[in-house]
Design a protein around this nucleic acid. Structure first.
Lengths: 209, 209, 209, 209
DNA sequence: AATGAATGAGACTTCATTCAT
DNA sequence: TATGAATGAAGTCTCATTCAT
């Protein structure tokens, strides 16, 4: 019979691609981009290595795509969290909390997106990502300055401080090698997030929240 | 006499070892640990690759040693900066400024010590390093709380936030991909350091400094 | 009616095959056999790669067929050019000129047919092709010897020399790497053809034409 | 004991390199550059693949070196053959004969040097090689014109014809697939060389030698 | 009969480490 | 003790061919 079920095949192909993407993201979640081998990804996805190359031009391109997708998801979440009802400080508080919570859930993923050294094409995506974050926070800070709830300051630099404080505070300390921190009240995730966000908000506003 | 010979040899060996260490640190300053090749290190040091292995068990061990030494130097600087006359906030301000300035002078070094992904043995050293920093800042924060110039808070977590905010703010923004930030007042190194340190101090104290 | 259907299908199939052949020859004209990818041929022909394999057993078989057809065309041209009115030398002069001119018009094609290294099955076809040429020229040379306008000699070997001299003189010098020959009178195509053909005729006749 | 026998090792290394070169040339003699695999070369040489890369930057560089060496040998032989006592025609006759005889001894080698499509770096060497040949023959032809034993003509073009006629006449017909030409007087190597060289000389001089 | 996604062997290359000298 | 040539596992990528649809 003729090959008419193009639709079905297209779907199947899309599924295969999606599968590769998900398996790749799994690998990245395990050890970052650098240690995600094409052979391992193919193995996990249950396809031949060549198949990866039918869906993506190169390892770098695959990673760039993964990065783009994961990043978009994160930025969207932050944008959404900034979009609640309230003044700028409240909205920033909400967004920072969201950002921190998500990073805590997948530290290696967060690290891969934020700090892992990557190839040029992926780094290019990261630049876009950083700019997206910077823009979001920066605008919210500007709003706060206009509203009078945040003192006048260099909004751009401040937004970088926010991302930095949270990233390192969460990603750094929680990286695999650091999970030996003795458990206790201090390690309670909620308190961790709370403390960091308070630090950030105070850093911005200069007031005890 | 035989003893003198041995003495001489020991000294010579120590010099060789020191030389390898210094050349390795140079390589790391260029491109981080990952891109520091044994062959290049040997080349710079003017010895054979095999000689490296007479002084260090493996590349990883060499790097761990490098890390340990570099780290100690940094921690010492911060400790020294914390040791000035003044109240806790002033001392922390001084230390954070020192930390930020040093990171700015050698961003790649700072990145290698703070954020570059490294092999387990090196990561182990990093943990020690983080703890050393944490301890120093933590103690200063506790002092501040006791003095009443810093509000009561989780000192350990706060110290992590400090390191994180500064690291990412400096190492991140100054990484190669971010050098396209348009030059201007904002890029002035002093202002950069100033802004970040203020953010940190406010984050700690909750007051506009 | 069933028969008519079959007839129509046969025709359609023949057209598809012809299309594949023409597109393949285009690819060969671009970069020779070696760089003619099945995927590219299929793309140009507007069919799937699998379809190629419905018409030809393998890439090698496809190339062998292409070679056979192209070759036949060339040999026919030479045969035709040898078939003019005149003595053997004049007829050979005419044929060599034709041969040279055609090679000049499509150097890559000529190179693919004459000199490109190819797989066994294609090489087999090349043998046939060479023999066809040899036979044509050989017969003309024999005619010339009989007519007395060409001195007695090994006609078969002489015919090989003719093909060789022209092929290399045209295909070799016109290959991409040699296009840096400074332009001028020497590069005039007509003069080039003229010189080579004269060389060949002199080689045969031993007289200054 | 200290590593003092640098001389010995240098010699050994040179031998290893020489060995690789010879084994590579063997591979080329079997199937040309294209089919000479690094793994096979390493296997023949009895070394690891990595060893090849200690002596040569890349496969292409190795081939370029092989080409350079083989080429130099050939050009030297021709230069030497042109350097005998006699007039230009006699010297050319001698050189062409030498050239033809050598090509006959190793057709695949000759083909690899003359006509096989190769990577850019190797092609670059070929250009040098072609120029060297062209220069040698061209000068001899000019000498002949000056001496009056060769009629005035485009010496450069003529020299190309010579190389072409011989190359194709010998390399083409004698390639592996063509060895099924029935043996007989015609296939006698001496006669073959003789015929081709006569053809060439007549092509140049326009006289029956 | 046509499709084209999937296959997977095989090619080149890198570089930390070893060991005869 | 120092040397550095040699090692070889491991990585990415290509492309002719197959086969379920």
């Amino acid at each position: 019979m003729a090959y008419r079920e193009t639709e079905k095949m297209r779907e199947r192909k899309a599924r295969a691609r999606q599968n590769i993407i998900e398996r790749t993201w799994e690998c990245v979640a395990e050890g970052g981009f650098r240690s995600a081998r094409i052979t391992r990804i193919a193995g996990l996805a249950g396809v031949a290595t060549g198949t990866i190359y039918r869906h993506f031009e190169s390892r770098e391109d695959l990673f760039a795509e993964i990065f783009r997708l994961a990043t978009q998801r994160e930025v969207d979440k932050v944008a959404e969290a900034l979009n609640v009802y309230g003044n700028a400080v409240e909205r920033l508080d909400n967004a920072l909390r969201k950002f921190a919570q998500r990073a805590l859930k997948g530290p290696m993923k967060a690290w891969a997106l934020i700090a892992e050294p990557v190839d040029p094409k992926v780094e290019e995506e990261r630049l876009v990502y950083r700019k997206a974050y910077a823009s979001l926070f920066e605008q919210a800070i500007r709003d706060g300055i206009a509203e009078g709830c945040i003192p006048d300051q260099n909004a751009r630099l401040a937004s970088t401080c926010l991302v930095g404080a949270i990233s390192e505070s969460l990603v750094g300390p929680l990286s695999p090698t650091q999970t030996d921190i003795p458990p206790g009240q201090d390690n309670n995730e909620d308190e961790l997030v709370n403390t960091i966000v308070c630090f950030c908000i105070r850093g911005l506003t200069g007031t005890r929240s």
